[in-house]
């Protein structure tokens, strides 16, 4: 492995910015976040970068590395070509705050707009429920989400068409799926999914699924079943009639 590598990091804020090159020593086993920290400690102390766990569990360190949306803490330098500068940019789908940090607050507002969990009455007298492991596992897949928002970053509806005010994006379709398929939940979000969250904007390009660091099968397991519920409710004439009745 090379002993030095060059990192081309975007520096700037909402008013604009530029790439700057930093060369720093590298060692076996390092990840991109380590290199960024080295640059920060020695060459650019005021560089803004967001991180917490450094173990792929908190979803804070999302960025675009050589054009690919990734967690910086889970991208090993040994998987990159270090003969070329490693290009590191903030996520594009969100407004820049500074350097590698973007304003992801929109995501937190979106979550609040989705109807919260509402359980059925408890099954047992002590207020608890009985659920089978198999039923729980289906939803556990969605609950693995670390809210890194990389899927939001690549979704063309947000990234290119900026439909942030209308479309909740793949992360929150996963969230809605987790609630809708929760064995205990009795809330109804199908109408909202169609009219308010505009699930129809998604045309199943699967870009979101491909970048998910938790390997959540976003499209097949979450979005498509939700779309089917919407179709059943609104486009199946018989069911529509039943629903109105």
């Amino acid at each position: 492995m090379a002993t030095q590598a060059m990192f081309r990091i975007w520096r700037g804020d909402a008013s604009g910015g530029e790439f700057r090159d930093y060369t720093t020593p590298v060692e076996e086993g390092m990840v991109v976040l380590d290199a960024v920290h080295r640059v920060q400690a020695r060459l650019a102390p005021d560089m803004a970068v967001r991180w917490n766990c450094k173990a792929g569990k908190c979803g804070s360190c999302s960025a675009e590395i050589n054009g690919m949306p990734k967690l910086m803490c889970m991208t090993r330098l040994s998987d990159l070509n270090l003969d070329m500068p490693v290009v590191i940019e903030p996520m594009h789908a969100f407004p820049p705050i500074r350097d590698l940090v973007t304003d992801v607050s929109w995501n937190f507002r979106v979550k609040k707009s989705i109807k919260k969990f509402r359980p059925r009455a408890p099954d047992a007298e002590d207020g608890s429920w009985r659920m089978q492991q198999a039923d729980v596992e289906r939803v556990q897949e969605f609950r693995k989400c670390i809210e890194c928002f990389l899927c939001q970053d690549v979704c063309h509806v947000l990234r290119e068409h900026h439909k942030h005010e209308e479309f909740i994006g793949p992360r929150f379709l996963v969230y809605a799926a987790a609630l809708e398929m929760h064995p205990l939940d009795i809330e109804d979000r199908v109408t909202d999914l169609k009219n308010k969250h505009n699930i129809g904007y998604c045309n199943i390009t699967t870009c979101c699924r491909q970048v998910c660091p938790e390997f959540i099968t976003i499209t097949e397991n979450a979005i498509i079943p939700l779309k089917e519920r919407v179709v059943d409710r609104f486009f199946d004439p018989l069911k529509q009639l039943l629903h109105i009745l």
Partner: peptide, 11 residues
């Protein structure tokens, strides 16, 4: 100090 939901409890 961080974004909501990122605290060390996740670890």
């Amino acid at each position: 100090k961080s974004l909501l939901g990122k605290a060390h409890t996740v670890m």
